[in-house]
Structure formats: structure tokens, C-alpha cells
Simulated assay, not measured.
Amino acid sequence: MRALLLALLLLPGLALAQDPPAPRPMAPAEERPAPRPAAEPAVPAARPEPQGETPGPEAPKPQEGQPAPEPVEPAGPPVHTTLRESDFDHSACLLELTLLGADYAPQAPLTDPDQPDCGIDRPILLHAPLPGIEIPGGAPMRCDTARQLAHWLRDFVRPASALLPGQPRLMALEPGSTYQCRATVGNDGTGLSEHAFGNAFDIAAFRFDDGSRFAVEPRADKGDLAEAFQRAVRGAACLYFTTVLGPGANAAHDNHLHLDIKARRGGWRLCQ
């Protein structure tokens, strides 16, 4: 009896030791959390194009063994703008012309669409450099050109003309070229003429009150008063103008006097 009771007490423990524990139930597949996706490699974002602009072509790379191209130097300002007078200088020049009795009219700036260097920033249309000495049709030029012309006529040409036979009074200048956008003549023609900037005035003939016309022409070695007059006024012109060319200088100037105020280093003058 005692042994039977002992066996009954040990039987549940033996059962527990022999039977394995029941497995833990698994959650249904649809209730499991989805696996975390693997990280993808980062891709750099494309740089947005500027609005309203079109990307330009890339600069060509120099080939191996070739020197890199020289940088392009920026072009300078148009020549006529470098000759623009200050307000003070322009006003002083116009005042002097007025005191000399010149007949002139300020004009709008002159430019040339085909050649940006040509032009006059502050031109005047000169009708008469001195009272009683007309330029038929008028001549556009810079004020300083007109001022030098007026002083030369007053101080030398008008007194010299009084020594011609009959003592005629100078009444008009017959112009050749005035303002004109063109290259120089009589040389290689590589540079622009001073006519292109309003710095030059050509005289083809002098007209007098007796109706006579004194044409500028070759008069060398004639030994008369006409030759003396032409030589005298031409030589005196170089006191007022930095360039004086006429008959004998070259074939292009055989029929007129070219007068200009081109600025040169050291005040050098060309008188031929």
C-alpha cells in the first residue's frame, strides 16, 4: 500500500520529464512585419538648368602638343569718343568762336553705322569762320578745328589777300573734303583720315569780292605774286594746324590744301 502511494506520487513528474514542451504557435504569415528593404545606392541629383538660358557649348580643349589659345583683348572705345571735349573746353571754344564773329550752329552727334571709330561727338556746322568769309553749304567739324581756321584767316590769309593785285577782299572758302568717314589718301591708306573725326578741312579755292577765284594748284618756281600768296598762307597754316599738305606733298593733294589738328607726340607737326 505504501509502495503504491509512492508510485502514484512520482508518475506526473515522470510524464513531464518524458513529454517535450508543446511548440509555440507562429503568427500567420500575413500578420508578420514586412522585411526592411535593402538601402539603395545614393544617386546625385541633376543640377537644374537656369531659367531662360541655354547652356552654351564647351570651350574646345587644346590638343596635346598645341599651345593654349591667347586670350582675346577687349576692343578699346571708338576713336571719336576719345576726342570728346569736356563741357568746359567745349563751352570756351564756342564762346571764342562767337567773339570772333563766326556763324555756326551746334549739331547732333555724328556717327557711322559701318565704322564705329568715325564720328564727332559735339559737332558744329560752320557757315562762316569770320564775318564776311563764307563756306558755301557749311562744313561740319569739331569746334577746335573751326577755331584754328578762324584765327589763321584773321591773322594771315585776309591780310595777305590784300596784297594781291587790286587788293581784293576775301569773301569765301571753296571747300574740298570736310567730315567724311574714310581712310587716308596719298599713302598706304591703312588708317582713318582726320576727316573721319571732324579734325580736318580742305580748301580747294579762295574767292574774292571782285569775282576772282584763286584755285589751289602747283605753282612752284613761277616766281609771281600768286605763288608767293599760296606759299605764305600755306606756311602760316602750320602755326595753327598740326598737318598742312598741298601741291607737291603728293598727287592726292595737288588741288587743295589739307589742314588738320591731329595730336602727335611732343607737338610734332607735318608741313609739306
Rank of each mutant, 00 (worst) to 15 (best):
A249S: 15
A200Q: 06
R122A: 07
L16N: 07
L95R: 14
A220M: 02
G223W: 02
D121A: 15
A29R: 09
P37I: 12
R122P: 00
F206L: 11
Q107V: 10
A251W: 03
T54G: 08
P74F: 10
I120E: 05
F214Y: 15
P20S: 01
Y104E: 00
L5E: 02
R219F: 04
P165E: 13
A75Y: 07
F241I: 01
T98H: 11
S86I: 11
D254L: 02
R231L: 12
R47W: 06
F206M: 03
A15V: 05
R234W: 04
P106Y: 09
T145M: 08
R269Y: 03
E134G: 03
L4K: 10
Q167V: 00
G211Y: 11
L94D: 03
H195S: 07
P247D: 07
L225W: 08
G198L: 05
I124F: 09
A59F: 05
G246H: 05
G246E: 01
A228R: 15
G235C: 04
A22M: 10
A34N: 05
L110T: 06
Q180L: 14
G186T: 08
M1S: 10
E73R: 10
A29W: 06
P37G: 13
G223M: 05
L6R: 13
D155Q: 12
I135R: 01
P28E: 10
C143Q: 02
G266S: 14
E40P: 06
A46P: 05
R122V: 01
A59I: 09
R182P: 06
A15P: 00
A237Y: 07
V72W: 01
G138R: 04
S193C: 12
P77V: 13
I120H: 01
D19S: 03
A252I: 02
Q51L: 14
Q63T: 02
E194L: 11
R36V: 15
Q18F: 12
K222P: 00
V157E: 06
E64H: 05
A45W: 05
P140H: 04
L126P: 02
R182M: 11
D87N: 08
A128Y: 12
P113W: 02
L95V: 00
G248Y: 12
E174S: 12
